[in-house]
Design a protein around this nucleic acid. Structure first.
Length: 347
DNA sequence: TGTAATCTAGAGCTAATACG
DNA sequence: CGTATTAGCTCTAGATTACA
């Protein structure tokens, strides 16, 4: 074949293939435009010739068996992966885990330890990150609850925390001092003001002859000790002889009695203050009350007084509720009438 | 009296471990 | 994997005390 003939043939092939391509294209467009009709036609044909459809299916399956199998395997894998991600399956897995745990806690723990160790070994950075993340998620959603527990714990046993703070200060004293100085200079006015208030308060305290600290925290251990002492004291049965002895014994002097009464009042006050919402800063709270009393505006003063009156009433009611042995009677207001006299039935 | 230091409570962060 | 508990550090603000 000479070159000219070759060129002509290539030309022909190209135009031939171009024609084919154009025809395919036009058919595709036709199918697109008439998709619904065609689908319907096909459906009708299939309904009319079920045996042909079946036969075709069998032939196709025989010819593409390998392909069908791998495709099935793949879609099954995808489905499993999706299932694993679903909420329901997560719940199922948790239940399964719980069952496994209940069946043999020791073995399960051991398994968990190993698994986590393996995970950490495989990807230490990723493991740490994931753990941090879920811990943080949990903590963020339980913050208040957690903090309350922490507070209670430290209140009951302040020693541990104190020791830790001491250690920390020993190790990082310079930083702490530096920070404190920076804080002072950043808030100088405010710091001077608190210093002034503190000194004024101390002055009043000394003038009133009060001790430096009026309240102290009672730890769980102290509370337990106090309770058992009280229990022992109050539940002890006195012998007849002991009672006689006490009757014969020296009478309490008026001075002692007065002292005891004052101590009781103080104890009640301390209790009321500690039941106050501002329990952490009772002194600050009383300071605020004092200042509010100094306000010159009459109405405001009266308002503050009324609020204070109400607060004290609430405290008194709370104490009364705790101590009373019979339920409180319903309040009946009958203006102009004195309350009914107490009788046996009406106490 | 102003400034610095120390103490304390509360909260945050991290990690280990146990339970489900 | 999620949820809880525990322990040890760390940081911060504010109260209290010490110093010059």
């Amino acid at each position: 074949m000479d070159s000219e003939a070759q060129g002509a043939s290539r030309e022909k092939v190209r135009t031939e293939s171009e024609r084919l391509e154009r025809r395919r294209e036009s058919r595709r467009r036709y199918r697109e435009r008439h998709a619904d009709e065609l689908r319907e036609q096909s459906r009708q044909w299939k309904a009319a010739h079920p045996e042909k459809v079946k036969e075709y299916g069998v032939r196709y399956r025989a010819a593409h068996l390998e392909q069908i199998r791998t495709s099935n395997r793949e879609s099954a894998r995808v489905k499993r992966a999706a299932d694993r991600k679903s909420v329901a399956s997560a719940k199922r897995r948790r239940e399964k885990g719980r069952e496994r745990y209940a069946a043999d806690p020791k073995a399960h723990r051991e398994y968990q330890r190993k698994r986590r160790a393996a995970q950490r070994a495989a990807d230490p950075e990723g493991y740490r990150k994931a753990k941090k993340q879920r811990t943080k998620r949990w903590r963020d959603s339980h913050r208040d609850e957690q903090n309350a527990k922490l507070r209670a714990k430290h209140r009951d046993n302040p020693e541990v925390k104190r020791a830790a703070a001491e250690r920390y200060y020993a190790a990082h004293g310079d930083e702490v001092r530096e920070r404190r100085r920076a804080y002072y200079w950043a808030n100088r006015e405010q710091q001077l003001e608190t210093q002034r208030r503190w000194r004024a308060r101390e002055k009043r305290r000394r003038e009133a002859g009060l001790p430096p600290r009026r309240l102290h925290r009672v730890t769980a251990a102290e509370r337990a000790a106090n309770a058992s002492e009280a229990e022992e004291f109050f539940s002890r049965a006195r012998t007849r002889e002991e009672v006689k002895q006490m009757r014969r014994g020296p009478r309490t002097s008026t001075v002692e009695l007065a002292q005891w009464n004052r101590a009781s009042v103080r104890a009640r006050l301390a209790s009321a203050i500690s039941a106050d919402s501002d329990a952490v800063k009772p002194v600050a709270a009383s300071e605020r009350r004092r200042e509010s009393e100094n306000l010159t505006a009459r109405g405001l003063k009266a308002k503050v007084a009324a609020a204070e009156e109400e607060r004290m009433d609430a405290i008194a009611r709370a104490i009364n509720d705790r101590l009373r042995q019979t339920p409180r009677r319903a309040q009946v207001h009958r203006p102009g009438h004195a309350p009914p006299p107490r009788t046996i039935d009406n106490v």
